[in-house]
Design a protein around this nucleic acid. Structure first.
Lengths: 203, 203
DNA sequence: GTATAGCTTCCTATCGTTCGGTTGTCAATA
DNA sequence: TATTGACAACCGAACGATAGGAAGCTATAC
């Protein structure tokens, strides 16, 4: 037989299915089928269906903490990473956007959280943290530094961050639902960033 | 016995359950139980579980078309409705927000669409139309008029609309997940609108 | 030779759905 | 006015299918 990564395969298959159908609508036979084993064999690796979801959520949490720039970046220490021109900002955001939209793990995890967010207060908090709180913190820090550096005018940095990143957040959702709109969205993102810089530029 | 609105009761109970658990996770016994009848009696009113969802989606569509200001308002004809001062804008948006967040029908319909959006391309389109396209159109029109009227500086009105309404859109989702954050969100909305007007105000 | 990870088989609960039958209401008929 | 029949709403019981899961067997690998 020679497997050895079956447990990981199960998690990947489960994420794949949960992110489209949701947890309840997905059967363990389906998951087992996707992995290539019988459903009873699944119980060699997980003690229940719920345990698969729990492991998945745990995994999302760990992966997120380790890899998301929003959870990691500290602008105080990484000042030279800040985009100080509109061109740099467009490049940086569009790059991150393409990654966030297309990375199979990130995009599936995001969709799963969207579907399951009302099931469980814990999932709701996680969803808010990943897609709102941390992102807002990240960009609030960036806006603060841009204002301190004299690049942008000093307004409330939290509101600046909201106006900068929350439209992009909605556009990600649009792409998740209708991938064919990605090009249109990317153009809007560019226009948005340039207009944002022009607006907040020091007079 | 004296009923007569059972069909409507079923739709309401179904929306109530679908908006939290989703379609697949909700059983017809549950729906019947919430209405106060046996599950077999449900089939006197709907021929299948799917038919309940279909009727619900149809109902959402109709209700939306009839009552949503985003689907109805034409700024060309209703020019005096436009908020021309920050105070008026704050008042208008906060009022609409409170309504959209708390109306039991609207909020449940919104949550159901969020949960089911990846199941069905039709639902995805409906979700995008209601919560993105129509809203953007509404505010793009408003921005155009505000620029024509000399209230705001002439920038790309579509981008202005995005920067104005899409953050609010995200804040609605935050309130859906964590209702206790409503007050915080309302304050952010006010700050956001005032800052937006200050920024785009004609110099 | 003991784990490990797969298998087959089987269990029970519940799913959506159908069926046959029992009410209560109401309009038409006698 | 009294009787009838159609009809809609509801019910209990049961359907086949499938769900999540348990038990025990087998083959491979260290």
């Amino acid at each position: 037989m020679e497997r050895g990564n079956t447990k990981q395969d199960i998690l990947e298959a489960a994420l794949d299915l949960f992110s489209v159908q949701g947890f309840e609508a997905t059967s363990i036979s389906q998951i087992a089928g996707a992995v290539g084993i019988r459903k009873a064999s699944l119980y060699s690796h997980f003690e229940s269906k719920q345990a698969i979801l729990d492991a998945l959520v745990q995994d999302v949490l760990v992966q997120y903490g380790e890899h998301s720039i929003f959870a990691r970046t500290d602008w105080e220490k990484d000042a030279e990473g800040i985009p100080v021109t509109p061109d740099a900002a467009v490049q940086m955001i569009q790059g991150q956007l393409r990654y966030i939209i297309h990375d199979p793990y990130i995009s599936r995890a995001r969709k799963m959280l969207v579907i399951e967010q009302f099931q469980n207060p814990e999932l709701a908090k996680l969803q808010t943290k990943q897609n709102y709180t941390d992102v807002m913190q990240y960009f609030t820090g960036m806006m603060k530094r841009l204002a301190e550096g004299g690049i942008l005018t000093e307004y409330d940095p939290q509101i600046m961050a909201a106006q900068f990143c929350l439209p992009i957040s909605v556009w990600i959702n649009v792409c998740d639902r209708e991938p064919e709109r990605e090009k249109e969205v990317m153009e809007l993102v560019e226009k948005h960033i340039r207009q944002f810089f022009r607006l907040y530029q020091k007079a």
